[in-house]
Amino acid sequence: MPGTVRAAQVLFFVMGGLGLLALVLAIVAGKAEAAGSISVTSLPAFVGLVSALRFPKRKPGSRGTAIIIASLLIVVGFGTLGQGQPAGLILCAVGVTIIILLSQRQSRPWFGRPVRP
């Protein structure tokens, strides 16, 4: 797996993990409204985590799906920024970074190759 694909995969893992951690902490603290907000905000990160698990399978649709999910991260980030929460800036930055990493020349051939038996 090229380094750019691995970096995008790690970013999805980190964002999904941070979202899950924030959700668990909000639930434990008994803040239901915060937990609901975090779950909606982190939804693209959770789906991105599942998408990143498919990267080693080299399916052509995995790259496109990951780019769409990263675009959703950007949209959610702008919405979060609009509500005055600085976490939206992180979502936007990670979404843009993932799109850039998966759009580079080294990343494209990885998803087009057949898997060796």
Rank of each mutant, 00 (worst) to 15 (best):
G3V: 13
T4H: 06
T4C: 10
R6T: 12
A8K: 09
Q9W: 15
V10W: 09
L11G: 05
F13D: 13
G16L: 08
L18Q: 06
L20C: 07
A22T: 13
A22R: 10
L23C: 10
V24L: 04
L25Y: 08
I27F: 14
I27E: 10
V28L: 08
V28D: 10
A29V: 08
A32L: 13
E33R: 07
A35H: 08
A35Y: 15
A35G: 15
A35V: 14
A35E: 03
G36T: 02
S37N: 06
I38N: 08
I38D: 03
V40K: 02
T41W: 14
T41N: 02
T41F: 15
S42F: 04
S42H: 01
P44Q: 00
V47S: 00
V47A: 03
V50D: 03
A52E: 11
L53E: 02
L53W: 10
P56R: 02
R58T: 12
R58F: 15
P60K: 00
S62M: 06
R63T: 12
R63L: 12
G64D: 03
G64C: 03
T65W: 15
A66V: 11
A66H: 15
I67D: 05
I67C: 06
I69G: 02
A70E: 04
A70C: 03
L72A: 08
L73A: 01
I74C: 05
V75N: 02
V75H: 10
V75R: 02
V75T: 13
V75L: 09
G77T: 08
G79K: 05
G79V: 08
T80Q: 14
T80L: 15
T80C: 07
L81I: 04
Q83M: 10
G84Q: 07
G84F: 10
G84D: 07
Q85T: 08
Q85K: 11
Q85G: 06
G88H: 02
G88T: 02
L89S: 04
L89G: 06
I90R: 00
I90M: 00
I90Q: 01
L91M: 11
L91T: 03
A93I: 10
V94K: 00
G95H: 05
V96T: 05
V96Y: 07
I100C: 03
I100S: 05
L101V: 12
L102D: 14
L102S: 06
Q104E: 10
R105D: 15
R105M: 13
Q106M: 12
Q106V: 13
P109S: 00
F111S: 06
F111W: 13
G112K: 14
G112L: 12
R113G: 08
R113L: 09
P114L: 11
V115T: 11
R116D: 13
R116N: 14
R116E: 11
P117A: 08
P117D: 06
